[in-house]
């Protein structure tokens, strides 16, 4: 149970399943999960957030053998991001499909090369905690060639916040079914 809602309820909230588009200040002020272990999501105004999408300028970059660590600045905050590059050696990655793993590793390496200081980058990934601080574990990092893409992203963040993320979650199907049942009887 989190935020007064059972996992059955927040697990079906569309915000829990999609990449939520947020500005940095909004992302950095997400409420952290109460429990450790990664099963519970972060929270924004009582709604669950697991995955996010943000656009910003790369203002720091640190390349190691196993990962690329960088920070994105969108003018309202700097968000630390980590792109793992150890698909072939990390035992946490499933070893079921070697070919798929090789292509994921190659793609991550290619993305790491493209993420350079001063570039405008769009990232998608999971929100995680490292040293009690929030970061994005990147699943996709794309360099935006069009500078207007950042402006469009701001407008999308504002529109989605006002029209979707700030609203209360839609009720899970069981509630709708029971309501319909009640109306019939």
């Amino acid at each position: 149970m989190a935020g007064g809602r059972s996992m059955w309820e927040w697990g079906l909230d569309p915000m829990c399943l999609s990449h939520v588009k947020l500005l940095s200040f909004d992302l950095l002020s997400l409420q952290k999960p109460n429990t450790r272990g990664g099963s519970e999501p972060f929270w924004r105004k009582g709604r669950p957030v697991r995955k996010v999408e943000m656009v910003g300028v790369v203002v720091s970059r640190e390349r190691k053998d196993k990962f690329l660590k960088f920070e994105l600045d969108d003018g309202s905050g700097c968000v630390p991001c980590i792109l793992w590059l150890n698909h072939m050696t990390n035992r946490y990655y499933p070893k079921t499909d070697q070919l798929q793993m090789e292509s994921m590793a190659a793609m991550a390496l290619k993305q790491a090369e493209q993420v350079q200081l001063g570039r405008l980058v769009r990232v998608q990934g999971r929100i995680t905690l490292y040293n009690k601080q929030l970061q994005i574990t990147v699943s996709s990092a794309v360099v935006e060639k069009d500078p207007n893409a950042e402006i469009l992203h701001w407008m999308e963040c504002i529109r989605l916040a006002v029209r979707c993320y700030d609203m209360s979650a839609p009720l899970p199907p069981s509630h709708n079914l029971s309501d319909a049942g009640r109306k019939r009887s």
């Binding site: 940095s24 200040f25 950095l28 002020s29 203002v59 720091s60 920070e71 600045d73 969108d74 003018g75 309202s76 905050g77 700097c78 968000v79 630390p80 490292y130 040293n131 601080q133 929030l134 970061q135």
Partner: peptide, 19 residues
């Protein structure tokens, strides 16, 4: 508020460039 938001919430030592 923007200055405190950009420095206190994250582990980053880098301050965000206010637009």
């Amino acid at each position: 508020v923007m200055a405190s938001a950009s420095s206190s919430s994250s582990a980053s030592a880098i301050k965000a460039g206010v637009l």
